[in-house]
């Protein structure tokens, strides 16, 4: 490994960044595949069915079979669609989901390398920007399809995204008032002083608000209006098939994982655990790997929670969705900000 140390810093940085990007993307796509099977098995358990259990042991090779199937299907483009947008939409919906990962610290460090791809000073603003790009994939898909149901799905999606983004942004402001920084690594540092320094315990209102809006931003039940099967026959992706449909499908789960990673980082202490000194940056390789495992475990727990919710709750009606967003969540978020500000001011 001596040749690594002899490289000049620029090349070292490029090499390690490329490595981290590669590993993170591959890990994310693998996680996406297994989140799908987790969703199907959990759904089956909740509905007292068995679920997919035939491909490989316990059905664990099912994602592979699904992938092969998507690739082998004919990539059919209907005649009435707007071609450019039709091709662009699946890419546009997948990109933001992958980009969000860049600023999330998924471990403390391995050797001398910090386990975050880009340690931006405006970390959380960056994620908000990227998340807000996600809506364009759905809108373009709806517009491109040039038919009624996808179009309605697109319109619903825009209105829903704008409404809940405001609540999400307002919910997160108290986090920065307490931590005093937008950098996600710094926010994890702030949470590494015992279990009750986790922001989920310090800011329960923010945590709950952020959790609710996270469901809305990822179009998960009870907020899955853009793809409500029984109203819109599947919504924005009706006209898609083969691998293009698979892209939408994967993006949904990738978004779920990304938003879970954000929640874990902001509110649940990121890669730290308050026991056995696991809240300090790793001293050796094994502890470093263990902390990556802790992070993944927390993400998996939140993803399972999102799946569980989907099979427990019915969908909101559209006016209820808007009412909840504008008349409940936003006022509560504003009151929360003022409350925390007053509390901080009294304390200082």
């Amino acid at each position: 490994m001596t040749w690594l140390n002899q490289l000049d810093p620029t090349w070292q940085f490029l090499l390690f960044s490329a490595l981290k990007v590669g590993v993170a993307v591959v890990a994310l796509l693998t996680l996406v595949a297994y989140t799908v099977i987790l969703e199907r098995r959990l759904a089956a358990c909740i509905q007292d069915r068995i679920g997919p259990n035939r491909v490989g042991p316990l059905g664990l090779l099912q994602p592979l079979a699904d992938g092969v199937k998507s690739f082998l299907k004919e990539d059919f483009v209907p005649g009435h669609v707007r071609k450019i947008y039709f091709w662009l939409a699946p890419a546009l919906i997948m990109i933001p989901a992958l980009l969000t990962l860049a600023v999330i610290p998924f471990g403390s460090r391995l050797g001398s390398q910090p386990l975050v791809i880009a340690d931006l000073n405006v970390g959380i603003l960056y994620t908000f920007g990227i998340v807000s790009l996600g809506v364009y994939g759905i809108v373009l898909a709806g517009y491109a399809a040039n038919s009624k149901y996808p179009f309605l799905g697109g319109i619903r999606s825009t209105a829903q995204m704008i409404s809940y983004e405001i609540a999400m942004g307002l919910a997160v402001i108290p986090v920065f008032m307490l931590a005093g920084d937008l950098n996600l690594s710094r926010i994890i540092d702030y949470q590494s002083h015992g279990l009750f320094s986790w922001l989920a315990f310090k800011l329960p209102v923010s945590f709950v608000l952020f959790g609710i809006t996270a469901f809305a931003e990822t179009n998960r039940t009870p907020f899955d209006m853009p793809e409500a099967e029984n109203e819109l026959a599947g919504g924005y992706n009706v006209e898609y098939g083969s691998m293009k449909f698979a892209m939408f499908f994967m993006a949904e789960y990738a978004n779920m994982i990304a938003v879970s990673a954000m929640i874990v980082t902001l509110f649940l202490g990121g890669w730290t655990l308050p026991w056995f000194g696991l809240d300090r940056p790793a001293a050796n390789l094994w502890v470093g790997l263990l902390q990556v495992g802790i992070f993944l475990g927390k993400v998996a727990a939140w993803v399972s929670f999102m799946i569980w919710t989907r099979w427990m709750l019915p969908r909101f009606r559209y006016d209820q969705l808007m009412k909840l967003g504008w008349e409940r969540l936003i006022p509560v978020a504003l009151a929360n900000i003022v409350g925390i500000a007053v509390w901080l001011w009294m304390k200082s």
């Binding site: 603003l125 908000f128 809108v139 697109g154």
Partner: peptide, 23 residues
């Protein structure tokens, strides 16, 4: 900071609103 705000406000907010209105 300016860049991130540009993305959040204009791209994530204003143009989405415009697209909504156009649709």
């Amino acid at each position: 900071f300016l860049s991130a705000v540009q993305v959040v406000v204009y791209i994530g907010g204003i143009v989405v609103l415009m697209v909504f209105a156009i649709l």
